[in-house]
């Protein structure tokens, strides 16, 4: 099943399929290891619901939901 990273529930896991962002944000995501085929685990949301914290390539990354919306994922069951 495909969905965007911002729609992930806590503890859900998936593989990055595609980055739909452009320019600065796209490059930043790549540089931080959010590239196609990377595995991502949704850790938690901030107390006010945004941003979110995920585990990617063995470290903790935080990003806003608006940025996570640019990351298309394939959910791992």
């Amino acid at each position: 099943m495909e969905k965007f990273l911002n729609e992930f529930g806590i503890g859900e896991r998936g593989i990055v399929k595609k980055i739909t962002a452009e320019g600065k944000i796209k490059r930043r995501l790549f540089d931080m290891g959010v590239t196609p085929r990377a595995e991502i685990l949704m850790r938690k949301a901030a107390p006010l619901g945004d941003p979110i914290e995920v585990n990617v390539r063995g470290y903790e990354l935080t990003l806003r939901k608006s940025e996570a919306q640019c990351v298309l994922m394939e959910v791992i069951k």
Binding site: K24, I25, R28, L29, M32, P51, E53, Y59, E60, L61, T62, L63, R64, E67
Partner: peptide, 9 residues
């Protein structure tokens, strides 16, 4: 500004 950053251990 984008907020894509590492949360260091």
């Amino acid at each position: 500004p984008p907020f894509i950053m590492e949360l260091p251990a």
